[in-house]
Amino acid sequence: NQASVVANQLIPINTALTLVMMRSEVVTPVGIPAKDIPRLVSMQVNRAVPLGTTLMPDMVKGYA
């Protein structure tokens, strides 16, 4: 199973992502692939993302 990107903490709306905010985990449904973590750094979330939430492409500005 492919690992997805999961929030390692509460990420407030419009926050630029950093490595410490994200972890990889095998979850259902599948979200953004963990291999894309380096690409996500500095991108902003367009909503508040609670701890443990799988990041989906529509949550990150400029990803999709």
Rank of each mutant, 00 (worst) to 15 (best):
N1G: 11
N1R: 07
N1T: 12
N1M: 12
Q2P: 10
Q2T: 13
Q2V: 13
A3M: 15
A3S: 12
A3Q: 12
A3G: 06
S4Y: 03
S4H: 00
V5M: 02
V5F: 02
V5Y: 01
V6I: 06
V6Q: 03
V6E: 02
V6K: 04
A7W: 02
A7E: 00
N8W: 05
N8G: 14
N8I: 07
N8T: 13
Q9R: 06
L10S: 14
L10V: 13
L10N: 12
L10G: 10
I11L: 11
I11Y: 02
I11M: 05
P12Q: 06
P12D: 12
P12H: 12
P12S: 08
P12G: 07
P12E: 12
P12L: 09
I13K: 08
I13Q: 15
I13T: 11
I13R: 10
I13A: 10
I13M: 11
I13N: 12
N14I: 03
T15A: 09
T15E: 05
A16E: 08
A16I: 11
A16F: 15
A16K: 06
A16M: 12
L17Q: 00
L17A: 00
L17K: 00
T18N: 06
T18P: 00
T18C: 04
T18G: 05
L19H: 07
L19F: 07
L19R: 12
V20L: 15
V20H: 07
V20F: 11
M21Q: 06
M21G: 03
M21D: 04
M21Y: 05
M21W: 02
M22A: 00
M22I: 13
M22W: 02
M22D: 01
R23L: 07
R23P: 02
R23T: 06
S24H: 09
S24C: 03
S24R: 11
S24Y: 08
S24Q: 13
S24N: 11
S24G: 12
S24D: 08
E25I: 08
E25H: 09
E25T: 12
V26Y: 14
V27Q: 06
V27P: 02
V27G: 03
V27W: 03
V27K: 09
V27D: 02
V27E: 02
T28Y: 14
T28L: 13
P29W: 04
V30C: 04
V30N: 12
V30Y: 14
V30F: 10
V30Q: 14
V30G: 10
G31V: 02
G31R: 00
G31L: 02
G31I: 02
G31W: 02
G31K: 00
I32V: 08
I32H: 01
I32N: 00
I32R: 01
I32K: 01
I32C: 03
I32Q: 00
P33H: 12
A34K: 06
A34Q: 06
A34E: 12
A34D: 14
A34C: 05
A34F: 07
A34Y: 06
A34T: 09
K35H: 11
K35S: 14
K35Y: 15
K35M: 13
K35E: 09
D36A: 06
D36L: 07
D36Q: 10
D36M: 08
I37R: 08
I37P: 00
P38Q: 10
P38S: 08
P38E: 14
R39A: 13
R39H: 09
R39Q: 09
R39S: 14
L40F: 02
L40W: 02
L40Q: 00
L40K: 01
V41Q: 11
V41L: 13
S42R: 08
S42Y: 12
S42C: 03
S42G: 14
M43F: 09
M43V: 04
Q44S: 13
Q44G: 05
Q44Y: 11
V45I: 08
V45E: 01
V45T: 14
V45W: 00
V45A: 06
N46Y: 11
N46V: 13
N46K: 08
R47L: 13
R47G: 06
R47P: 02
R47N: 10
R47S: 11
A48V: 13
A48Q: 14
A48N: 11
A48G: 10
V49M: 06
V49T: 05
V49Y: 02
V49P: 02
V49Q: 02
P50T: 11
P50W: 09
P50H: 12
L51A: 15
L51H: 12
L51Y: 13
L51E: 14
L51N: 14
G52L: 05
G52Y: 06
G52N: 14
G52M: 06
G52V: 02
G52D: 12
T53H: 15
T53K: 05
T53P: 00
T54L: 05
T54A: 06
T54Q: 03
T54S: 04
T54W: 02
T54C: 03
L55E: 00
L55D: 00
L55I: 10
L55V: 07
M56T: 11
P57G: 09
P57M: 09
D58M: 14
D58N: 11
M59A: 10
V60K: 01
V60R: 00
V60M: 06
V60T: 01
V60D: 00
V60C: 03
K61A: 13
G62C: 04
G62S: 11
G62R: 05
G62Q: 11
G62Y: 07
Y63V: 04
Y63Q: 05
Y63K: 03
Y63S: 04
Y63L: 07
A64M: 07
A64C: 04
A64Q: 15
A64P: 13
A64R: 03
